[in-house]
Nucleic acid binder design. Structure first.
Lengths: 247, 247
DNA sequence: ATGCATTTGTTCGTATGTATC
DNA sequence: AGATACATACGAACAAATGCA
């Protein structure tokens, strides 16, 4: 009959009011918040309380404040990118193994390839194509440049699905997974051969997406991932994933 | 050659240190942080700075602090809530559509059903079975009880995949998606018939998982989701998802 | 049940570095 | 270059809550 009550702290009410003003549209992205001193007058709280509220809002990606800025804190657009940080923390939390990540990535990239093949429009396929060409041109141009181009290629595919959730999760899982094996890769001597194989596989994937063959695109993406990263797994776990994607 | 620098605020460095101690395992869930005064001694910063750091960590779900608690702030286990809160906000603001969520959920639950079918052990299949039985018994026992039993059923399946990332993402997406249509469902009159159909579908899914038929289990899970929730989508979007899972 | 020491919640005043005009 | 308003950070103080003797 009665609800449990939780002590509500002053800074929380400040956060609430600003958040709801943002939701209602009273405040919009790009606009500026009043200065901290003005906020303490309006909310009738101390400076510290205002600052705690601003810190929380800032860490949640809703605004950005700079020292000395006479215009006050800037309200940021609410974007799916706010999911990136918590997702990243989750994936790096240590309870997630490399196998978990690889499994999840195979799942996501397979689906992304399918959806991209089925749904892409001219702009999106052009973006994928140009990312692929950049990937081509960076073979042998150093690890970081090549790695960036690879990220851009997969991002372009994820973009073409039109699903922001898929896009974010895919990007996070990819970055965490590659980060986990980065050290090994750096030591792998014959990186030119590796890159060459990667580019061939990606070209094939692009053709399938371009041809709108979703089923084959998904299969190709999954096979490539397992082939490239499966070597980091024990044999039995690799076999399990192979069975999975073969079905 | 040089990297751009960003002013790093004192509280951020405090947050970083506590977060990394948590990642490394130097601090674990359930343990207590030193008091604020002790923290200001260790970090050599003022109390305000310590407090801003604690507020940020608290809003990210990593700890909880109560006024007057002599034991200090309590470190919390990482929970799906850290993802659910921001995703919930995005869904409510319209940045993520219901279709995005449904698509993602079909993706996750399909894969979870496949993996659960292939990988489950005795304990896990028993957990799924008992969750199903509880679901049976709660038909007509009120919405909240039934809803909880449904969550438990899907969680048990996700658990059986052995992939914590899949488990958490699945739980989050499920919770946000059902939250979005909760209001509509509450108004749907004939809930007994709905529940009955749900239970039949879930029973079939359980049988397929129990029989280790991963391919059919995945197909069943996807079909059921689309059938139940597809009504909330426009016809053309529903057709797209139908094509997808039919492939 | 009462009081006490400790801790967090909140406020205020001050000094300092910074951005903008 | 100087003035102004701003955010950053510190430290002291008081109120309220907690746990324990």
């Amino acid at each position: 009959m009665f609800e449990p009550v939780r002590p509500v702290r002053a800074y929380e009410r400040v956060v609430e009011q600003i958040e709801s003003a943002l939701r209602r549209g009273d405040l919009r992205a790009g606009e500026r918040l009043p200065s901290e001193r003005e906020l303490m007058r309006q909310f009738q709280v101390s400076r510290s309380t205002v600052r705690e509220a601003l810190r929380v809002l800032e860490s949640n990606g809703l605004l950005r404040s700079r020292q000395g800025d006479p215009q006050g804190a800037e309200l940021l657009p609410l974007s799916p990118d706010t999911l990136r940080r918590p997702m990243d923390k989750l994936a790096r939390s240590g309870e997630i193994s490399f196998e978990d990540l690889l499994q999840f990535r195979i799942l996501l990239d397979g689906a992304a390839s399918y959806l991209a093949a089925r749904l892409h429009d001219e702009t999106q396929i052009a973006a994928i194509r140009s990312a692929l060409e950049r990937l081509h041109s960076t073979v042998g141009a150093g690890r970081t440049a090549w790695s960036e181009a690879d990220v851009a290629f997969h991002d372009a595919i994820a973009q073409a699905t039109g699903n922001p959730l898929l896009q974010i999760c895919s990007a996070v899982v990819r970055s965490v997974a590659t980060g986990m094996i980065e050290s090994e890769i750096a030591e792998a001597g014959d990186s030119a051969g590796l890159m060459d194989r990667w580019v061939r596989q990606h070209s094939r994937l692009f053709e399938l997406i371009d041809a709108r063959d979703g089923v084959e695109a998904a299969a190709q993406a999954r096979r490539d991932l397992l082939e490239e990263y499966g070597v980091h797994l024990p044999a039995d776990r690799r076999q399990l994933l192979a069975d999975w994607i073969g079905s």
